[in-house]
Design a binder for these strands. Structure first.
Length: 208
DNA sequence: TCTATGATCGTA
DNA sequence: ACGATCATAGAG
């Protein structure tokens, strides 16, 4: 129908420089359809990753079976397993400069919908701790490698983000967390004062 | 094959 | 500050 347009972020949103996408995802509402329920939270922390100019990026050394989704179309979910325990959720973006790959890591959410299910998934009752980290939010939202490569630019997707911006105030930026290379790039974005950002922001003095 | 490492987390 | 835990990548 002519007048219909979705309130879900589409391909155009993701088809930009990962720095722009990372900044613009802050304050947006992320949704996950799992086992017939809709789970959701507001994105409060992200990081941008590039390719050949970004030694911290999985895509830095070129395409492998693990990172190939990162070299695919903007608007795909790149989900990987790490540290023997944890999954991390990224959205594939457009290019950083002339590079071939880019992605945005979702690092923290403020839970809004399906909180009881998230608590069960995490086997934990504390809201502050529920989705305040990239591995935690994947566990809470029942996200694993089975979803690697899924399209997120539609309301029918198992994961999608709405256009409405819920945040008041401007995102802060800083260096990225947990990396050993490219420590100087300030490619992390977050809402300060939010309880659900990852641990290293809640205790900024620990931050490297 | 073999080994080192990691876009983390919970506990101490 | 540290150990758990295992898939992945790079080396041999």
């Amino acid at each position: 129908m002519d007048h219909y347009h979705s309130d879900v972020l589409g391909i155009d949103f993701y088809s930009r420089n990962p720095l722009i996408v990372a900044r613009n995802l802050i304050g947006k509402q992320l949704f996950r359809r799992s086992k017939g329920k809709l789970l959701s939270g507001i994105i409060v922390e992200t990081e941008a990753y590039g390719e050949s100019s970004d030694p911290a990026s999985h895509a830095f050394r070129g395409r492998t079976s693990r990172n190939e989704v990162m070299f695919g179309e903007p608007g795909l979910a790149y989900i990987y397993f790490t540290y023997g325990n944890h999954h991390c959720l990224n959205f594939v973006t457009g290019r950083f400069r002339n590079e071939k790959a880019g992605a945005v890591l979702i690092r923290a959410l403020e839970p809004t919908l399906g909180i009881e299910v998230m608590k069960q998934n995490r086997k934990l009752d504390n809201l502050q701790n529920l989705t305040s980290g990239p591995g935690k939010l994947c566990r809470a939202l029942d996200i694993d490698r089975n979803l690697n490569g899924v399209e997120v630019a539609s309301e029918k997707s198992p994961i999608f983000v709405k256009k409405t911006n819920t945040h008041i105030g401007k995102p802060q930026s800083s260096t990225r967390i947990g990396i050993t290379l490219a420590r100087d790039k300030e490619w992390r974005f977050f809402l300060n004062g939010n309880a659900h950002v990852s641990r290293k922001l809640i205790y900024p003095k620990i931050q490297r």
